[in-house]
Simulated scan of single mutants.
Amino acid sequence: MLLLKPFLIYLAAGFAEIAGCFAVWLWLKEGRSAWLLVPGLVSLIIFALLLTRIESDSAGRAYAAYGGIYITASLIWMRVVEGRAPDKWELLGAPICLGGASMILLAPRGS
């Protein structure tokens, strides 16, 4: 249970960040309406707010641990939203990144 709450927060933050950035991608790379930037900006604000919910004594540590979750969320986004399957290297790399994120966030530290 200790790992579930931060993982869910990080996952939600990851999808919020990706959605916000994807709005910019659609506007600039695919010629979609600039109005997509409005929900994109809201999504990026939600992303930032979610990251502050992580229990950590350092913002940098919370952000570093987030990196592994972000990578995994990006691959899920690529599959679900963009319809492109991750290759074997992405599927191998994601759990390595999750392991690193867990180590950063949960490692025992002296007081």
Score class of each variant (00 low, 15 high):
A19K: 02
A12Q: 09
S102M: 14
L92A: 15
P86V: 08
A59G: 08
C97I: 08
R109Q: 15
L75I: 04
I104H: 04
I45A: 13
R32F: 13
E30P: 05
E55L: 08
S43K: 09
L106F: 15
I69V: 11
E30M: 04
L105F: 08
L105G: 07
S43R: 11
K88T: 15
W77S: 04
G31E: 02
R32Y: 13
A48G: 11
T52K: 14
G40P: 10
I69K: 00
A59W: 14
E55T: 13
G100E: 04
A12H: 10
S74T: 13
I18P: 01
D87C: 06
A16V: 06
S102L: 10
E82V: 03
I69R: 00
I46M: 06
I76G: 09
Y63D: 09
V38C: 05
R84L: 12
A101C: 06
R84D: 05
G93Y: 05
S74K: 05
D57P: 00
L44D: 02
E90F: 00
V81T: 05
Y70H: 09
Y63E: 09
I104C: 08
Y63V: 11
F15N: 02
R61A: 13
I76W: 01
L75G: 09
G68S: 03
E17T: 01
I96H: 15
I76N: 06
G93I: 05
S56I: 07
R109E: 12
G83M: 12
G100N: 05
A107D: 01
R61C: 04
